[in-house]
Design a protein around this nucleic acid. Structure first.
Length: 277
DNA sequence: TTGTGTTTTATTGCCTCC
DNA sequence: GGAGGCAATAAAACACAA
């Protein structure tokens, strides 16, 4: 095997490696290795392997490792020199570097994966915490809203006008199906209200906020349900067609949690439709 | 001792660059 | 077109449990 026919340790190696070493490379170990008087020749230094063994000796591998640390690419002159110094074929040196780069890349990928994984785990933990916090805050909002509605009812219970009575119960049960107990109807507008006082329908100063219109928006997880009839027995296609052809209000944008503070701008334009129900 | 999984060395085929 | 790099893979050697 070529590994055993070589010319032994070349003292010029330190010069060779030194010349190829970058300014930031750690020089100490390599230099110590090269200058070590105990370094054996590679001829016959294979203490535990036979000559038939195609594996490189421990010393050869150590030497190549040091060289790889300095520079993981192999220029032709360096390859020849290393081969000469180690008693190997230049091709063997090239192959060793090639395989070594492949191993390094695999290790690097494993490291990168670990970094990404820990980053992902951290982000997921944050996300889960935020979800919990969101649920907690939502429950709090529901609780406070119900308390507020209860107070409003108690305060104005004996003074219910015809108008108030209408606000309290929607005509029919169309809208009430999806509303939970204690919610005030969402069909909370009269055509004359809209025509006469449409502009302040969602004005924060308006008492309408306290009569259930806005609070029910708050309570609806999916705010777009507000004007939807009960379609639970319709297929998805049927629902889609219905929403496109018959019920313009269904095209209201879905309100996200952070939309609670303001009504959608299009709401005013479509407000007339709530009377059609 | 043997079977099996892992590591190391080497080959092959493809691609890019000069 | 040749040299060199890389990915995939074969083959040999090693490590180790049963």
């Amino acid at each position: 095997m070529a590994a055993c026919g070589g010319g032994g340790f070349n003292s010029n190696l330190s010069v060779l490696i030194q010349s190829q070493r970058g300014p930031c490379a750690a020089s100490q170990p390599l230099e110590a290795f090269f200058l070590s008087g105990t370094s054996p020749t590679f001829l016959g230094s294979r203490s535990v392997m036979s000559f038939a063994d195609r594996r490189l000796t421990v010393d050869q591998v150590q030497f190549l490792e040091k060289s790889f640390e300095v520079e993981n690419k192999l220029e032709p002159e360096r390859k020849i020199q290393l081969a000469k110094d180690l008693g190997l074929q230049p091709r063997q040196v090239a192959i060793w570097f090639q395989n070594r780069r492949a191993r390094w890349k695999t290790k690097q990928l494993e490291k990168d994966y670990e970094v990404l994984e820990s980053s992902y785990n951290g982000l997921k933990a944050d996300y889960d915490n935020l979800l919990k916090e969101k649920e907690r805050l939502r429950a709090e909002v529901n609780l406070l809203t119900n308390e507020l509605l209860l107070k409003e009812k108690e305060k104005g219970g004996s003074e219910l006008s015809d108008k108030d009575a209408f606000y309290e119960e929607p005509p029919g049960k169309a809208m009430a199906d999806s509303a939970s107990e204690g919610e005030v109807s969402t069909v909370a507008c009269k055509q004359e209200d809209i025509s006469s006082d449409k502009s302040d329908m969602f004005d924060s100063e308006s008492p309408h906020y306290a009569d259930g219109v806005h609070s029910s928006l708050l309570e609806a997880g999916d705010s777009s349900y507000v004007f939807q009839p009960d379609q639970s027995d319709l297929s998805q296609d049927e629902e889609d067609n219905l929403s496109k052809s018959l019920l313009p209000p269904l095209a209201f944008p879905k309100l996200e949690d952070d939309d609670y503070s303001d009504p959608p701008a299009c709401f005013e334009d479509h407000a007339i439709w709530c009377w059609s129900f």
